[in-house]
Every structure is written in structure tokens, then in C-alpha cells.
Design a protein around this nucleic acid. Structure first.
Lengths: 343, 343
DNA sequence: TTGTAGGCGTTATCAG
DNA sequence: CTGATAACGCCTACAA
């Protein structure tokens, strides 16, 4: 009875020591084979592999982590788990990491710098092998400091540092293209719903907007710019404000799709038709943008791809290579929410 | 120089031993205070607390995990990270776990039973303290087997087992209410876009639909039922099929919001107006459903709440209590996509 | 190429 | 109530 219970309890926890015994070698040899730390004779290797298969041994990542080795886990700091944009990015990360045997540890910082610091501390205490920070808010300096200890990949910031790999999307070009598209359709009065200008991406998109205006010799009108916060409600409110300001405009460029959705609702509530009365342009090309009515014209920023690239860069960093990943250029996606303006 | 470097390297890794030295007690005592494992004299406790604060000590979860204790992490098996529904649930889990000091370990199984098994193995190898399975596909039997080893909370399945806590949403009632709403508006020809009938939730919603029809003495017409897969495209395709089948209908009940979005696009493409020509009803009440045009009438299934409840149930399980969480009843959300049918 | 010994930071089991 | 002492499962010098 005692034996049976012992067997039962242990049956699911096969240790490296057991593999060593089974195959008649020392634990270190097993470890070496597992990690490829040193060359091992073919016959021993085979014996060990057989034992591993027979016993169904799975290395314990926890013990590995403690022993100073790797935990095979990558910390991922995101801002919100339930954001259509980040969600896709996280999936990309997961898909890329999985075949390599790494698992992501997701934490969300909610655009809060304090919480972001806490998250990173937590991840480090859990001994992650690397850190991916998606559009973090924390200072370059502290990021560089943590990069001294473990490989770091960041997105959405221009940071020049040998230890940090930065993956950047050309938000300026995206903002430019979006605005240019509207201009080419004959629009001259183009409202802009901004994001939080503190954040580089929002700022760049705004610059792109202004630059396209300038390139077309259209005077910039500050009254046509309203602040938003990258989510639906703020886009709706911003549009309400625009509408009640008596400013004339024939098109709205919302600097992300979520705000564009909000803007669409506001226009709908005011009995304004898209694109007949107002053209609407978004930014990001979320999965949903294809399914809103009318389907949204937007700038494609491939979130899933972003995740994959960030993760693969991390994998390269981990294996001592220099990552070469680079984000694809912004692509204009013209759907039904924008159309030619006949004055 | 050597000293300085040593200090620098170690400065970020304060161990329990260091705390013990600093406060003049044994490591065991520090551990006891940390975990509340035994009563400790007030003065020692204070000394230790001070030392912890002074040194900025953070327990190492990895070491804890190895030492046979808990890892303070909860495995969460989801089906897709980037799903509007699950995304919200994950956030709920995170929000609930965080204050308790636990961190979630998210993995997605992509509705695949093999991958789900792999995920669970992986989580167990990482020594999670508990497991939350959101709408898993794996058999009740294997779930019960893993529940022998660690606390398990599941959603979306009716499982009677003392070791597993199941959190269920009343999909039948939801399906019933949605259909009833349409009937009360005067609709008699109500099309139904189904989910994968293999899954209990989809099946229950379908039963609710049929039951409401029956309650109103409306004959069930199998030709008005088209299969879908709970995502936008499938909703669009299903509606296309419906439209080309020449079957008359005045309303569509899509058994989740994502399919409703797809249905809306299909209707739009066919120049059919919502709700003037066709009323459209969804299910779930995703964040986006408020922002589509027209805002979608739907059944509210609080995903965020679901996550919080699942996590709090897990916390209770972990502390030896019997969870009492129960999902709120389905609520009908009537917005602009449904309206009275005047024949 | 291989084995032995020690340690990673914490908790658990003993004595006292 | 408190302190040694031994694990936990693995990795990495070091030695052979």
C-alpha cells in the first residue's frame, strides 16, 4: 500500500537523477546532453535519450531557474491584455516563442509608469531570460539599466543602445499617407483626432498629418485637432466636440482605429453618413476594421507581425546573434469609409 | 574595485539569508514571518520587517517553487489571447490575482485538444499552484485527473466533481431571452447563426432559441439555421448563404457578437438596412458592440466579471475554502440593431 | 569525455 | 517560539 502510494505520487515527477540512473550515467552527463553544454559520446547520448523517452522526463524549469540557468521564459510587458492591437501582438509573440521552447509571461502595465516598473521587477524576480516591452512608458535610462542584466527588446521608442533592440513602426509615414490619401480624394478640411502626445507614436502620427497638409499647401488649422486617448469613447467624444464647434470639415483622420470606431458612432448619432457626408480614416488596421460599417480605410500596422518580430529578435539576442528584424512600412488600406469629396 | 563590482552585482538580489543576518534571527524565522507559518514574537517580527524594508527584500518565487512550496502563479488556459471575449476575461483574472500576490501564466490552446493537453503539462511542469481552464475542450475525465494534483477552476462546462469548481453562464436562458426579445418585437421568421454544436455553450444557445420559438408557438424551421464558427468571417458567410437561399426572414440571431458583426457586413453589402430591413441580435456584449453601427442589441455575458470570479474562486480554493462564486444571469441589452417588425 | 561536489534561495522537519 | 539541517531538481566548476 505504501509502495503503491509512493509510486503514484512520484509517477508524474520524473527527475533528471532518475534518468541518470536509468541510463547508467551521471546526472551531469544528462544535463550536458539536455543543454548541449559539452560533447558527449554517441552511445551514452543514445542511452540517455532512450531513458528520457521511456520515463517521459520533462526538465523542471523551476529548478533550472534556481540553479542559475535559464527559465525558458520571456517576460512580456504589455499595456493592456484586452486591447485588439496588443492582443494580436501577444499572439504573435506566443506563436514565435513556442516552437523554440520558450513561454511568455504576460503582464500589463496599464500605461502606468509605476506599475510598469513593478511589472519588470516581478518578471525579474521570476528570473525571466529576457524582456519584451511593448510601447513602454518608462524612461530610456531605467530601461538601459535593466538591459545590463538581461536581453531587452522594445517597441515604440527610439532608443540607441547596444544592449537593447528596438523595433519601430514608421508612424510618421503612416500619418502622412493617411492624410495624403484624404487630400488626394479632394478633402481640404481634415480634422485630426490625436492620441496622447506624450507618447512618441501619437506624436509621430500627428507630425505626419501636419507634414502632409504642408506638402499640399493646405494651411494647418489647430481648431481641427482634438485630443483623444486611443480608445473608442474618446474618439466619440472628440467627434462630438468637433461637431459642436461649428468648424467645417469633410473628413476625419482618427489616429487609431479604436477612436475611429467611436467617431463613427458619433457621426451616426448626428445623422451624418460615412463616407457621403464625412470621410473617416483610421490607423492600425485592427481585425475589426474590416467588419465595421462601412469597412474602415486605415493604415496597416501589423500587430501580429510586430509580436513575431519582437519575439524572434529576442530569440536571436538569446542565442548571441544580432537581431535584424525590421517592421514593414505602413501600407494604406483603402476601404469604404473614405471617398472623393465633390464640393 | 572588486568590492564595488560585487556590491553592484548583488545589490539587486537581496536574499532571505541577508534579511536574517540583518535582523539577527534565523532564516527559518524570516520564512515563518513571510508565510505566517507559525507565530513569532512581536519584537523579532518587527526587527525582520524593518530589515526587509531596509534591504528592499523580495522573495524569490523560483526558489519558493523549488523548495516544494508554492510558486504563487496560476496557470490559465485560454483558447485565444486575441479574442475580445477572452481578452476581457484575462484582464479580470489578472486584476483579481494581482492584489493577492499571484501572477497568471497565460497559454492559449486554440480550441485544440492536443494543444490543450500540452499546455496543461507545461503549466504543471512550471509548478503552477492552480489551474483555470476557460472553455476547455478536453475530456472531463482528464480534467478530473489533473484536479487530483492541484486546484482547478473551469468555465463553460457542467462538471460535477468535488475537486473542480465550475463556473457557468446560463447560455440557454441567454439564447431564450434573445429570441424572445425578437419575438416580442413582432418577428416570426428568425434566422439563427449557430456556433460549433460540439461545444456546450453553442449548443445551449441553440436550445434556448428553439425553446423560445416553441414557447411562442412558432414552428422551428431548420432552413433558417446556418452554421458558424464564432468569428466574424463565419457570420458573414452564414448570412450570405441565408440571403442566397431565398428563405424569408426578418431578423437574425447570431449566437455571438463577432458573428453578428460579420452578419452586419453581409447585410450592408447586400444593401439591407439594420434594423429597418432586418433586425440583428448578438450574444456576449463585447466592448465593441456598443460602437458598431448601429449599436448591437445583445445578451450580456460579462467576460471581465467571469475572469474575476474564476480567479477569486481559485483564490478561495487555494486557501482551503469552498468557492461560492456564481455567474450573473444573462441580461438583455436592447440597442439599435433590433426593432419592431411591421408586416 | 565523464563523474563528484557544491550551491542556487527557500521551505519543511526536526530538535530544543 | 526558535534555530539547525536537510531537501527541492538542476547546473557548473573542478577534478579525473
Amino acid at each position: 500500500m505504501k509502495t503503491k502510494s509512493a509510486v503514484k505520487n512520484k509517477s508524474l515527477i520524473v527527475t533528471l537523477d532518475m534518468v541518470a540512473k536509468e541510463s547508467g550515467v551521471s546526472p551531469s552527463t544528462v544535463s550536458r546532453i539536455l543543454n548541449g553544454t559539452a560533447t558527449v559520446s554517441e552511445d551514452k547520448k543514445k542511452a540517455v535519450d532512450d531513458a528520457i523517452a521511456k520515463l517521459g522526463f520533462i526538465p523542471n524549469p523551476v529548478a533550472r531557474g534556481l540553479a542559475g540557468g535559464r527559465t525558458l521564459s520571456i517576460g512580456v510587458v504589455t499595456q493592456a491584455l484586452d486591447s485588439p492591437f496588443y492582443g494580436a501582438a501577444l499572439r504573435g509573440i506566443e506563436d514565435e516563442l513556442d516552437p523554440a521552447g520558450y513561454s511568455p509571461l504576460f503582464v500589463s502595465a496599464h500605461w502606468n509608469i509605476t506599475s510598469e516598473t513593478r511589472c519588470i521587477d516581478m518578471l525579474r524576480s521570476r528570473r525571466v531570460d529576457g524582456l519584451i516591452v511593448l510601447n513602454g512608458r518608462m524612461s530610456d535610462a531605467s530601461l538601459k539599466a535593466t538591459a545590463k542584466h538581461l536581453p531587452v527588446v522594445v517597441t515604440g521608442r527610439n532608443i540607441k543602445s547596444p544592449e537593447i533592440f528596438a523595433l519601430n513602426f514608421d508612424n510618421f509615414a503612416g500619418g502622412f499617407k493617411a492624410t495624403q490619401h484624404l487630400i488626394q480624394l479632394g478633402h481640404r478640411k481634415i480634422a485630426f483626432i490625436a492620441g496622447d502626445m506624450e507618447h512618441p507614436d501619437a506624436n509621430e502620427r500627428f507630425k505626419g498629418y501636419k507634414s502632409a497638409l504642408e506638402a499640399a499647401s493646405i494651411p494647418f488649422d489647430p481648431d481641427l485637432v482634438v485630443p483623444g486617448e486611443y480608445h473608442e469613447v474618446s474618439g466619440m467624444l472628440a467627434t462630438d466636440r468637433l461637431l459642436s464647434s461649428n468648424r467645417q470639415f469633410t473628413a476625419i483622420f482618427a489616429s487609431n482605429d479604436q477612436m475611429a470606431f467611436g467617431a463613427a458612432l458619433s457621426l451616426h448619432r448626428h445623422s451624418l453618413r460615412i463616407p457621403d457626408d464625412v470621410s473617416l480614416m483610421g490607423f492600425d488596421d485592427l481585425a475589426n476594421s474590416l467588419y465595421c460599417i462601412p469597412p474602415l480605410s486605415t493604415i496597416q500596422q501589423p500587430a501580429y507581425e510586430l509580436g513575431r518580430l519582437a519575439a524572434s529578435a529576442m530569440l536571436q539576442l538569446l542565442s548571441g546573434q544580432k537581431p535584424t528584424a525590421v517592421m514593414p512600412a505602413p501600407v494604406l488600406i483603402s476601404r469604404d469609409s473614405t471617398r472623393r469629396w465633390r464640393s
